[in-house]
Structure formats: C-alpha cells, structure tokens
Write a protein that binds this DNA or RNA. Structure first.
Lengths: 202, 202
DNA sequence: TATAATTACGTAAGGCGTAAGAATC
DNA sequence: GATTCTTACGCCTTACGTAATTATA
C-alpha cells in the first residue's frame, strides 16, 4: 500500500492537470500555466503519485490522452479550484452574490410546479456555490427572453419542451435554464458564468 | 494590493483552520492534527496571508473566536477537503456509488411531478457529488418508510406536507428527503451521510 | 508560576529552471 | 534532425520542530 493516505491534494497540481486535459499538450499547457514543461511534468507525476493511479497516457510523440482514472478524475477535479475561489470570496466578504432568476409569472399550468422547482434549484445552487443567493424575479412569459438578453435577469427558468428558439441563441455570458421531463435543465456551465466566478454584486 | 492573486489555497492549512474552529484551542487542534502548536500557528498565519484577512481573533489568554471573515470562511471551508476526497475517490475508481432512491410508485397526484423532481434531484446531486449515481426504486407509498428503515433504499422522496410520523424518526445513518412547498427537501447533511463519503458500492 | 500563543532559528524536504537524455516521427 | 516528454542537477523557497519570548491569570 502506498502512502497516499493523508497526502493532501495540491490544488496547483490539480489545476495544472485540468489545463493539461484541456490543452492536450504539455508544452501548451505549461505555457498557459506560466511554468516550464519540466515543472508541469513533475506536477502531473506528483498528482499521480498522490492519487496512486496514472492519469495521463504517454504514447509515442507525447501526450496520449487520459487514462480511465484520468477521465473520472477530470470530471470532479475542476470543482476544487472552483470551491477554493468560492471560499476566497467568502472570506473577502463577497458572500452574497445574488443571481436574479426570471420565473414565469402567473402561468396557470406551471404555477403549482414553481415553488418546488425554485426550492430545489436554490438548494442545488446553495450546495454548489454557497456564496450565491437566488432572487426570483416573476416575469411575464413573453418577457423572459428579452429580459435575459437585456441583462435584467441572469438566468431564466422555463417549463415545457423547447419550442422554437424565440430569438437568438443564448448570448455568450448568459445561460438559459429550461425544465422539461426529457432533458430537464441545461445547467449553466459552472465556472464560466458571470455570477459564478465574479464577486461583483448588483 | 497584496499578492494573493493566484496564491492557491493550501488544503492542509484550510483543514487545520477547520479543526481549530472546532476545537477553539490551538493546543488541542494541533494535537488533533499531529503537529506542534508552532506549526499550527504558522499554518493559520499563512492562510490569513493568502486570504488577505485575519480569520482568528487572539484575545487575552489565547484563542478568542473567529473574526467576521473567519465565520464566513468556515461556512465554506469544509467543502474543500470534502471535494478533494470526492476527487480522490473518483480517481481511485469508486466513481459509481449508487444511491437507491425510493419514489412513490403509481400515485396519481404526484405522478406528473415525479420525472421533473427526479431529474432535478439527480442534477443537484451530480453537481454536488459527481461520484454518486441515483437509482430510482419505485415503491408503493406505504412501503416507503419500512423500506427506508430496512435498508432496501437509502433515501426516499415523498410528496405532500409532513404528516404524522409513521414510525420512528429517521435512523442515525439514514435520511429522509421530503418535498413540499414550504420546506421542500431535507437534504442529507453533506459529508456525513454514508453514501456521500464511503466508497463502498452495493 | 503556569498556561497559551508567537517568534527565532536550524534543518530537512520540495519545487522550479536549466540542461542533458530518451523516444518517436 | 526536429519535436515531445522525462530525468539529472543545483538553487532557492518554505514548512516543520525545538526552544526562547511575550502576555495573561
């Protein structure tokens, strides 16, 4: 048995691994991290030693993809720097970034569903991002998309299968949350949304 | 402006701070961590320097409670070692701990709500604990509680306001998830539930 | 004086960069 | 021979423990 019992994960190494998995190239990843290739190699080796399993496949000619363990790990790994950022923001005092959530107001069919949906969504969000508060903004159905695009709300919650896209697809830094039974929620990509990573309050 | 820009948080220091906040005493916390008081002092100082704010109040006679920033930070901080453990387990291959979720089967009123509720619940769970899969187990309503207590399911999802407690309150290591509009879900305490922290699969 | 935390200081470990090495095309 | 990653080596940073120091009761 190796001694990776209490060996705490090194956030720098984890972050480096995430970047490497995105760049798929030691040289580019190292450049992006601002270190030499040698340092990146050793960071990955340290991480692999700490975890007790190889993460990266080295085939002929360099980087050769992730191992099975690497693929599993990369699913969870980005959560660590993200959580660290949340913790930093909490200490800094920016503990309450409010996410304005546009919800359809006064629509007969979905009205009974809304309270539970809101509560569950807020629960999920609070667990993933404790520093973010949800402020439901009742919005007439036809105004959901315009208000989202204009920035009056950050996210909208709609019900029903996706209909014809009303206008343009979601703008770059805004996300659409929709609920249906088939594919219920297109969750905003964590860590990329404005409200998830920036401390600015509005 | 200090240089805590990209200074990655040290998980060891974070963990030490969590223990200190629990023990409320440098000596006991250091002993629990297996280090000297001197080392713990420096870990806390390092953490405070990285965050740019003091976390611990030092009043006459030693530890004097947490500062405001410390209280905010301690709310989020335990999530970091917890997430690290999840990541370790994912790499180790224990990626699929299945959570057997008893859902009421064939109940007319709640039937239309179930798909969305399940999907949203699974979404929340996947985001918080990527290594956990949900296996819905349709269960006749009267059997929900017995099956939970007997261990045939790990969690049950019920609808409607809380009625009279059918039998004993939830056992120590089992949790009841209930949904209603008022207080929709009593979420199992993260990190303490069996299925959230142990790699054993069933 | 006893207790509690911080500071001083020496040592050991670890991370990074430069440069050399191995492998592939 | 060029590219890509790894290994060897030296330097420097830093984290720890021991022990002295300050402060309080």
């Amino acid at each position: 048995m190796q001694d990776h019992h209490l060996a705490d994960l090194d956030l720098t190494a984890v972050q480096s691994f995430v970047v490497l998995s995105q760049q798929r190239h030691f040289g580019r990843a190292a450049a992006g991290l601002g270190v030499t290739v040698s340092a990146l190699t050793k960071r990955i080796q340290r991480l692999e030693a700490a975890l007790g399993v190889p993460l990266v496949e080295r085939d002929s000619g360099g980087y050769g993809g992730l191992t099975a363990a690497g693929r599993r790990f990369v699913e969870v790994a980005p959560e660590l720097p993200r959580t660290a950022q949340t913790a930093r923001l909490a200490a800094a005092g920016a503990s309450t970034t409010t996410l304005r959530l546009g919800v359809p107001a006064g629509v007969g069919v979905v009205a009974p569903l809304l309270p539970a949906a809101l509560a569950t969504l807020e629960l999920a969000l609070r667990h993933a991002h404790p520093g973010v508060a949800v402020e439901p903004v009742p919005t007439p159905f036809p105004r959901l998309t315009p208000d989202l695009l204009s920035g009056d709300v950050d996210v909208v919650l709609t019900f029903g299968g996706r209909r014809s896209p009303t206008s343009s697809p979601p703008a770059s830094r805004r996300s659409t949350a929709s609920a249906s039974s088939a594919r219920p929620i297109r969750w905003p990509t964590p860590g990329r949304s404005r409200w998830a990573s920036s401390p600015g309050s509005r």
